[in-house]
Amino acid sequence: MHIRQDGPWLDDAAGRLIRPYTVSGGRTRPTTTLDLLSLVMATGTMPQAHLGPEHSLALGLCHGPTSVAEIAAHLRLPAVVTKVLLSDLVDCGALTARAPRYHDSPTDDRSLLEAVLDGLRRRL
């Protein structure tokens, strides 16, 4: 069995060797309210409690403001599991979290919609 070096507990043939919810201790509800677009950032404080390797990997991704969705993608974990991990780090003071800022009505901004459409056309 060859274990890949690009992620935690991954195998080329079998995929993830542990269940995602094992990472969060079976918890499915974070103690901190986090949206997929919430930005988290490391505070520089190291957690005093022993946390798992996924917590360390998540913390390493948060040197600058990073979205929950981006961290979930890098960790290759479901968003809800990632939210639990990040919530643990917020609770112990290693991360700060900021809710996304929504405009009153983002669909009214024609220039934003045109920019998104142009970007999609370039990708296709």
Results as ranks from 00 to 15, higher is better:
Leu57Gly: 02
Leu17His: 12
Leu39Lys: 11
Ala115Asn: 10
Cys92Ile: 06
Leu120Ala: 12
Asp6Trp: 05
Ser56His: 06
Pro8Asn: 00
Ile71Pro: 03
Arg4Asn: 01
Ala73Gln: 15
Lys83Asp: 09
Val90Trp: 02
Arg121Tyr: 15
Ile71Trp: 01
Gly119Lys: 03
Leu37Gln: 15
Ala97Glu: 07
Asp12Ala: 08
Val81His: 06
Ala79Val: 14
Asp11Ala: 11
Leu10Asp: 01
Arg123Lys: 06
Met46Phe: 07
His103Asn: 11
Arg76Ile: 03
Leu10Tyr: 06
Cys62Gly: 08
Cys92Tyr: 00
His55Phe: 08
Trp9Val: 04
Ser56Tyr: 01
Ser111Lys: 02
Lys83Trp: 03
Glu114Thr: 11
Arg76Met: 04
Leu120His: 09
Asp6Gln: 08
Arg122Leu: 13
His55Ser: 15
Gly26Asn: 06
Thr28Met: 07
Arg123Gln: 10
Thr32Phe: 04
Thr31Val: 06
Ala94Pro: 14
Leu37Tyr: 14
His103Phe: 03
Arg76Tyr: 01
Ala72Trp: 01
Met1His: 13
Leu95Ser: 09
Gly15Tyr: 06
Ile71Met: 05
Gly119Phe: 08
Arg122Pro: 02
Thr43Leu: 07
Thr33Gln: 02
Arg27Pro: 09
Trp9Phe: 10
Cys92Lys: 02
Leu75Trp: 01
Asp88Ile: 11
Lys83Pro: 02
Asp12Lys: 01
Ala73Thr: 15
Ser111Met: 04
Ile18Gln: 14
Leu120Val: 12
Leu57Thr: 09
Thr22Met: 05
Ser67Pro: 13
Met46Asn: 11
Thr32Gln: 11
Pro30Asp: 00
Arg4Ala: 04
Asp12Trp: 02
His74Gly: 07
Ser111Cys: 00
Tyr102Pro: 01
His63Gly: 07
Leu120Glu: 11
Cys62Lys: 04
Ala72Ile: 03
Val90Met: 07
Gln48Asn: 07
Lys83Arg: 15
Asp109Gln: 09
Tyr102Cys: 05
Pro8His: 00
Ala13Arg: 14
Arg121Thr: 15
Thr32Leu: 07
Ala49Lys: 06
Arg27Met: 13
Gly44Glu: 08
Leu61Met: 14
Leu86His: 13
Ser67Arg: 15
Tyr21Met: 13
Gly60Pro: 05
Tyr102Ala: 11
Lys83Ala: 15
Thr32Trp: 03
His63Ile: 02
Gly119Asp: 10
Pro106Arg: 00
Arg122Lys: 12
Arg101Lys: 05
